[in-house]
Simulated scan of single mutants.
Amino acid sequence: MLDIELLRTFRAVAEEGSIHAGARKLVVAQPSVSRSLQRLEREVGAQLLVRSHSGVSLTPAGEELLAHVQDILGRMDRVPDLVRRAARATRPVIVGAIAGAVAASELTEAIVAGYAESARGIDVIVRELTFVDQFTRVEQGDVDVALVRPPYRGEQLVLQPLFGEPVLLCCRADNPLARFTSVDIDGILDQPMLEMLGVADYWNDFWLLKQQRGTAPKAISRPVATMAELRYAMMTTGAVMPISQGSAPYIASQPMTSLALRDAPLSVAAVATRRGEGRPEVLEFAACARRVTRKLLHRIEGGALLT
């Protein structure tokens, strides 16, 4: 089997037209290049070069070898890039989505479908995230990119807001509030709300409307991490909770209901990636989410573009 380095030396000398120039190109001492050429000629059993004061010229055998060497080395030079591309293509992109289909409301499926179309050749895996782990699973690398709901106050992630949507109040259908179509925050001050155990305090504070209320509500603590758990907790305790408008079809059906919460802040849908993320296919998910949001925001009633 021919030594690949001998072939590289032969190609350099043949292309440069002299042993001296070939050695300079390879950054190798000229005597070493001469020895390599002699060894190659011994291995192929033929003279490859005619040496003269003006340089070197190829023999017919040398011409034949050079044609093969250029093809072989050209292929070899492309191998690292091909391997890297193959590795990228076979390494899946794991997409997280808080509360699954509710992550970006009516745009969730369109974002995932749009990304799957633009990332052909890449295996896309979608994982449902909970209220508790929506940020930590991205931070820890369990998922590569995620559709999340701020607020987030950590340093490890970069959040790109997509849109804001209205917040509704969810309650049991037998709650006296259910006879109204809307209510303001002052109208629910006496209502018990759910404090979700395990989530960050600032995230709890947002959904308990602490900033808008100016005080902590009467809270019932429950280990609530999913939309289903939130629904059943309200159902069994009689508590009320703000919910994103897009989650209403999943959580506010009988025996629950929802009504507009007039002075509540918007709930923001965002894309989260790890700070310093460099994989193009991961960053493409965020770009795709922005494109889909700009195109389809009209599907979200009262939605505000943030991307």
Rank of each mutant, 00 (worst) to 15 (best):
D142A: 12
V143P: 03
P249Y: 00
R85G: 13
I94F: 03
P217W: 01
D3R: 12
G114L: 03
A173T: 13
R127G: 02
M227Q: 04
E281S: 11
V33D: 04
G96L: 09
A304Y: 06
A233S: 07
A287S: 14
A23H: 06
D133F: 05
D201M: 00
A272W: 06
V132R: 05
V79I: 15
A97R: 01
Q70A: 08
L6F: 02
S52Q: 15
L147P: 05
Q211H: 12
S54P: 05
Y250T: 12
L230I: 03
G246N: 07
I4W: 05
D263R: 11
D263T: 12
A104Q: 10
M1G: 15
V167A: 10
R172E: 07
S182W: 13
L7K: 02
P192N: 02
V124Y: 02
L194Q: 03
V112C: 08
R88E: 15
L65E: 11
P217N: 02
G187N: 02
E195Q: 03
V138T: 01
T59P: 01
V271A: 02
S34D: 07
A23S: 12
C171Q: 03
G246S: 05
A252M: 02
I243E: 08
T226L: 00
G55V: 13
P151C: 09
A29Y: 10
R39N: 14
D81K: 15
L6G: 06
P249F: 04
F135N: 02
R88H: 12
A200V: 01
I122S: 07
A264V: 03
I188G: 01
M235E: 14
V28K: 13
V69M: 10
L40S: 07
A233G: 04
G302K: 14
I300R: 08
T215G: 01
D190F: 00
T130A: 07
E43A: 10
P242N: 01
A260C: 02
Q191F: 02
D184Y: 09
R149F: 08
E155R: 15
V95N: 09
A219M: 13
C288W: 09
L296G: 08
A264N: 05
L197W: 04
S36I: 14
I72Y: 12
T90G: 11
L208K: 05
T108R: 05
S258Y: 00
R8C: 01
T130Q: 06
A87H: 11
Y250D: 13
L37E: 03
G238I: 06
L209A: 00
L197M: 12
A200R: 09
S253I: 10
I251Q: 06
G302W: 07
E195L: 08
F131H: 02
S244K: 02
I111A: 07
E165D: 10
M1Q: 15
V83W: 07
T9F: 01
L37Q: 07
R149L: 10
V158N: 05
L208N: 07
S52D: 14
T90L: 13
F163H: 09
V167M: 11
R231N: 00
R262V: 14
R39H: 14
A119T: 08
G141Y: 06
N175I: 04
V112Q: 08
R137H: 12
R51S: 12
A219R: 13
V102Y: 00
G246W: 00
V268N: 08
H68C: 11
G114E: 11
Q254G: 09
I4D: 09
L305G: 11
R222I: 00
I72D: 15
L40C: 13
R231H: 06
A46K: 15
